[in-house]
């Protein structure tokens, strides 16, 4: 009897966690391959393409605009300081995926993180 109750308990737990898991998956709007790649761009272009400072914002960029520029960086037709290195390393499918991703992001104007005075007791 005890065993059966435990089994029912486990089954309920399993169903609950699967339901929860499915919800997480469904709510994750982007296929993970592209959203992880897009997150790599955040170092210069900001989280979800909303940069601070002077780097070109990518959130809300026109799909065609993004595609045209990236493909021109890739072919070398458009001169770049750094972007040609990234464009050349990506394949056409990834560039298309990034175009769709960034064009779907909501443009915001985040402010840069303010710095602080270093604490006296900081190690190192």
């Amino acid at each position: 009897m005890k065993k059966i109750i435990t089994m029912i308990g486990l089954a309920t737990l399993l169903i609950t966690s699967v339901a929860r898991a499915t919800e997480v998956f469904v709510l994750s709007a982007n296929p993970s391959h592209i959203h992880v790649l897009a997150a790599s761009c955040a170092t210069c272009h900001g989280t979800n393409g909303n940069g601070v400072d002077q780097t070109k914002p990518l959130a809300g960029i026109g799909k065609t605009d993004f595609l045209t520029k990236m493909l021109a960086f890739k072919s070398g037709e458009r001169k770049a300081t750094v972007m040609h290195r990234h464009a050349k390393g990506l394949n056409a499918q990834e560039i298309e995926g990034l175009a769709a991703y960034f064009s779907a992001q909501i443009p915001r104007q985040p402010s840069a993180l303010p710095s602080q005075v270093l604490n006296k007791n900081h190690a190192n």
Binding site: T43, G46, T55, H86, G89
Partner: peptide
């Protein structure tokens, strides 16, 4: 992947990009 490499020469423009890189990575991470 193909296409990686280094600057042909250092420049003030890349200095500005580097400063912007720092602001963006700090804001992305923190």
């Amino acid at each position: 992947a193909e296409g990686g490499g280094v600057s042909s020469a250092p420049s003030d423009k890349e200095g500005e990009y580097a400063a912007s890189w720092a602001q963006n990575i700090w804001t992305d991470v923190l």
